[in-house]
């Protein structure tokens, strides 16, 4: 029982990170119907920004500010940085293609992805960096509950990802930009006629979507995984899987899909095979796509052609 519980907790933490990435895919898809393949690489940039902020504040061993503030600054700068990067990507790689063919933004996104990966390789070299979290957030921090231990970092990541999701849900549901975003997702032409500034809303969408990816990147770093230029590919695909399982374009769907995927993956690792866990995840996606092409919570798309 405790093993199962432990796997569930690990899965939820992982799922929180996936959900944040998935939300980015879903937001952009909802508004522009573009699969933003560069999203995984934005996540990578976020992890790098977090790392360099940490180094700038004195490094993991001798931080010049209290640890809590350091982590906060890492998240804020990374989210801001990736958010701006998202706006830039939209401006230069997607906006010129808004009235182009269906495949053009997809290819352009592939191009951006290659560009980001190799720019990172050129600037930061191929060395794998680690946040070395355990030296400033002791692993003894955290609590145990009936044989299940949640260490401090995992708890923090879980809480923060849920907080970010709630924040996003509030933003989408209550603010003016959020409403405008939903309107555009529902019917762009009608939204334009209602006087909605589409460019502004799309900018905001990309900012928020990329900022979430940046936060996920820093979380990934805190959870003691290596930071390198190619790290975006697999989590990007996983986040994408989560978005699709939940129903791409649907915000609750992305959250559900992310958490579900995290749990499934960690259960597969715990009970079936560590080797085949990725295969299982991807196979799961193919099955979901075939049985329910619109995902678990997606609305049925009306396809003309």
């Amino acid at each position: 029982m405790s093993y199962l519980g432990q796997q569930l907790v690990n899965g939820l933490t992982l799922g929180g990170v996936y959900a944040l990435i998935a939300l980015g895919y879903t937001l952009v898809y909802g508004v522009l119907q573009i699969l933003n393949f560069a999203h995984g690489d934005v996540y990578m940039v976020g992890a790098f920004i977090g790392f360099f902020v940490m180094v700038g504040l004195g490094g993991p061993l001798a931080p010049s500010v209290p640890v809590a503030i350091m982590v906060l600054i890492m998240f804020l700068v990374a989210m801001l940085g990736t958010g701006l990067l998202g706006i830039v990507i939209e401006r230069f790689a997607y906006r010129p293609l808004r009235n182009s063919t269906r495949i053009a933004p997809l290819i352009s996104a592939l191009g951006v992805s290659i560009l980001l990966q190799n720019a990172a390789l050129l600037l930061f070299s191929a060395n794998i960096r680690t946040y070395d979290t355990s030296s400033y957030i002791p692993s003894t921090l955290g609590f145990s509950f009936a044989d299940i231990t949640i260490d401090g970092v995992r708890l923090f990541v879980l809480v923060l990802s849920i907080a970010l999701m709630f924040g996003l849900a509030r933003w989408v549901n209550t603010t003016q930009v959020g409403r405008a975003m939903r309107a555009i997702a529902y019917d762009r032409d009608a939204a334009v006629m209602m006087g909605i500034d589409v460019d502004k809303v799309i900018r905001w969408t990309f900012f928020v979507s990329a900022a979430l990816a940046g936060a996920a990147g820093v979380m990934n770093g805190l959870l003691l995984r290596g930071v390198s230029n190619g790290m975006g590919l697999v989590p990007g695909l996983k986040g994408f899987t989560a978005a699709v399982i939940g129903g791409i374009g649907s915000i609750p769907g992305a959250m559900l899909g992310g958490l579900l995927l995290g749990v499934v993956e960690s259960l597969a690792q715990g009970y079936l095979s560590t080797n085949f866990s990725d295969t299982i995840t991807f196979a799961l996606l193919i099955v979901v796509m075939l049985l329910k092409p619109n995902g678990l919570l997606g609305k049925r798309a009306i396809v003309k052609a």
Partner: peptide, 11 residues
């Protein structure tokens, strides 16, 4: 880098 840039510019 060149391939990436080329794809975007070409599109």
């Amino acid at each position: 880098l060149l391939i990436g840039a080329m794809l975007v510019v070409l599109m």
